[in-house]
Amino acid sequence: MSKARSSLARTGAVHVALIAYTLVALFPVFLTIANSFKSRNAIFREPLAVPTPETFSLIGYETVLKQGDFIGYFQNSVVVTVVSIALVLLFGAMAAFALSEYRFRGNTLMGLYLALGIMIPIRLGTVAILQGMVATNLVNTLTALILVYTAQGLPLAVFILSEFMRTVSDDLKNAGRIDGLSEYAIFFQLVLPLIRPAMATVAVFTMIPIWNDLWFPLILAPAESTKTITLGSQIFIGQFVTNWNAVLSALSLAIFPVLVLYVIFSRQLIRGITAGAVK
């Protein structure tokens, strides 16, 4: 009896601690979104209150949408992220297949070479990357960003995907070979559909740093027409520091897509992290 009670007390304490930290984690996000829908006076008078009909105001969003080209920034971010993820998945899966399926001279070495990029950040090569982009006239194009992000995402993608490809049954592939499928058909028709869950995990992992990156947009594509949402809101907020409505609305607009995607993919992501950690 006393043991049951003490375990109940312990569970209670655990809940209290977890709720407390959950508040710490969510409060700033809540504060930003709630205040972005309030009038300027209300933001300052009662920062912690949720918007009520009296204090509700969209003035911040109006300013943001009028002043900054947020739709354009958003499009740029989507294009860069989607194309990079597609390339990382396709090329990463192809390389992972080659490394896990065939034995050839230099296989291990190739794997190590590709794994280098997991630990060494691509940022350190920025000086020469910028020179290369200048030489090829790619500065201020989305292509430059896509190339960099593809290179950045490939190492981890190859690593994770080849782990998964080793689990695809050899019998299935051999059956395909006997049926006369080419190696390409085996890859695209048999193997790729089977590793879709792993591809989703890799996609989420690849997406977060690309969507959130400030460094490369700032350096490679700072022009108005190629700004990503992260850089766009950074500059916009920098200009409007005193317009609190606009700043809070811009922040909320930047949070929103991440929030939606997270709600959709959180299970996938968390499973990916917890499964990947074991290896």
Partner: peptide, 22 residues
Amino acid sequence: LVFLTPALLIYTAVMILPLIET
């Protein structure tokens, strides 16, 4: 070779060579 080339090419050209050049 076909499977490996695209990844190797982009990775080498955009990541490894700039790093060495830097």
